[in-house]
Amino acid sequence: MLVLAIDTATPAVTTGLVQLDAAAGPRTLASRVTVNARAHGELLTPQVREVVAEAGAALGDVDALVCGAGPGPFTGLRVGLVTAAALGHALDRPVYPVATPDAIAYDVFRDAPGQELLVVTDARRREVYWARYDETGARVDGPNVERPAELADRLAGAVVRRAAGQGAELYADVLGLPVTAPGFPSPAGLVGAAADAVLSRATPAPLTPLYLRRPDAVEPGARKRVSQS
């Protein structure tokens, strides 16, 4: 199956065209991963066009889409989700959401299985998004958002041998875990994390963003007076 992968939940704009077979797993035909936290909206569609062209395919050849659902900074996260949703609608193809840390974890376990993992991405405001995986690669906690120090305390009672994701590098001193690649989700990681659902042509789960935080908004208090009393 030909799968278009998209993720904008981290500073990277991840796009790729991936061949997915049950036996061989995901194989990347073309990919663009650009790290620029301020240009998700500008970069995403041009990158989609580039990977499709580079693979010598047309968008109409795509059998399914996979999209990272976060958690991630809201504005960038929405670019990927609305792009994937609109492409899915326009092409009449299913769009499978995956938790973005699952895509990073997929890559880690494919290259080096057997050890517990913490995936950490930057949530800004000195917080991180994180998810924890057991030695088989199954997610056992998270995704959640927290201050790195709080996360470090929480990890005291858990077995974690390594960490991945850009947030793990940023806060390596606080978390005290060896950091392994990758820093960002890859097209193959995204498709790999969704492989079962994609291959079985399951009805996709709703494309719901993992915001994990409520909007900043306060209800107005009493009216401010303008006259001097």
């Binding site: 066009r49 504005t75 670019v79």
Partner: peptide
């Protein structure tokens, strides 16, 4: 509004590209 505009712009690019 920046974040609001971006949702529409991203969607429009996707529809135009797909069609």
């Amino acid at each position: 509004l920046a974040g609001a505009l971006l949702v529409g712009v991203a969607a429009a690019k996707a529809y135009a590209t797909a069609w």
